[in-house]
């Protein structure tokens, strides 16, 4: 069996003919396997959904209990058969519940990694290396300029700024699923025990993380008591990146705009967004980790998708590995 007979792109998403399912479809389909809960990968309206329990929970939080007609929870590493092929879910280390999906048929195994990261993250399961014949890798940060520093140092930078500018509100932009909880958890692990204020859009997902054993400490809504503008001076407020460009942000005392994202590596990106304090904290692999993963996974062929495919394909060429860009549309890395 050739690779493209087992999985190939269709307008709806990555399709598996022998199993008759799609992985992370961008349009509603009869059977969808979902890697993780980010909105560009997990969409409502599919008939049947298979995903990890946490991903199903997150989809229910985001889209309501009716996000699909039926859903099935996949257990880590436990094979599930569809026709002639077998699928297994393995931790991807991206956000809580995120999975790589291994698809096996006729002796050929392809791993669709979804989005993944190799770094330690106290808010989700650690990435598991799954040997395979063809590895599908993301390329969000697929350029040699992306080398994420230690996230502890980034959190320390934030805390230093908080003590240097105690009269200002530090507004940390972080995506609602995964990044926000990770930043909060890393702050707690760094010993920051004051209440952290959060934007309303984060509330349900933070509550959910807490029920899953991720202790985020005391979180308070960043709502305004009447006329008390200095309430947030010296505080850390976490919100979605878009909320800081919104009228909502006007309640804060002389804010320092911080943004937790792998994109913050490039100063001009930070400057364009008006970010004063970039925090290079990513839930994707950096360049070195993408390369290491390609080396370690032992696949003879690499498919590269959503991101900067050309550099990673070039890397594979230099390593004399077969590689091709896999043109999937509709993934906009909401996670960064």
């Amino acid at each position: 069996m050739r690779g493209q007979d087992l999985l190939h792109p269709r307008p709806e998403g990555l399709y598996c003919p022998p199993g008759d399912f799609f992985i992370d479809p961008v349009r509603p389909v009869a059977r969808a396997l979902i890697t993780h809960g980010h909105a560009d990968h997990a969409r409502p309206g599919n008939t049947a959904v298979l995903a990890t329990q946490q991903t199903l929970d997150i989809m229910a939080i985001r889209y309501g209990a009716t996000f699909a007609q039926s859903s099935q929870a996949a257990e880590w590493g436990k094979p599930i058969s569809f026709g002639d092929c077998t699928v297994t879910f393995h931790p991807a280390g991206h956000v809580l519940g995120s999975a790589q999906i291994a698809v096996e048929c006729g002796g050929l195994r392809i791993v669709a990694s979804g989005d993944y990261k190799r770094r330690h993250d106290p808010s989700c399961q650690a990435f598991e290396l799954v040997p395979c014949d063809i590895f599908i890798t993301e390329a969000t940060f697929g350029l040699p300029v992306f080398r994420h520093p230690d996230s502890k140092a980034e959190v320390a930078k934030l805390l230093r700024s908080v003590s240097q500018f105690p009269d200002r509100t530090h507004m940390v932009g972080a995506y609602a699923l995964g990044k926000a909880q990770r930043v909060i958890k890393e702050l707690r692990d760094a010993g920051y025990d004051r209440p952290i204020f959060i934007h309303g859009a984060l509330q349900k997902l933070c509550d959910y993380y807490q029920t899953q054993g991720i202790d985020l400490g005391e979180l308070k809504p960043a709502t305004l008591e009447k006329g008390a503008k200095t309430d947030f001076a010296g505080a850390i407020v976490v919100g979605t990146p878009s909320s800081f460009a919104d009228r909502w942000a006007r309640r804060f005392a002389d804010p320092v705009a911080a943004f937790a994202s792998g994109w913050m590596q490039v100063r001009q990106r930070a400057r364009q967004r008006g970010v004063e304090l970039p925090l290079i904290i990513s839930d994707h692999c950096d360049w070195d980790e993408l390369c290491d993963t390609i080396d370690e996974v032992g696949a003879g062929e690499i498919w590269v998708t959503h991101g900067r495919e050309e550099a990673l394909v070039r890397y594979c060429e230099l390593k004399q590995l077969r590689a091709q860009p896999l043109h999937l549309v509709g993934y906009e890395d909401e996670s960064e």
């Binding site: 350029l143 040699p144 300029v145 992306f146 100063r267 001009q268 900067r308 550099a311 890397y315």
Partner: peptide, 18 residues
């Protein structure tokens, strides 16, 4: 690979530093 990187960052010193 350096060319891709420099195109993306746009500043020689910053590209090399990264």
């Amino acid at each position: 690979l350096f060319g891709y990187s420099y195109d993306y960052v746009g500043d020689l010193a910053e590209t090399i530093s990264l």
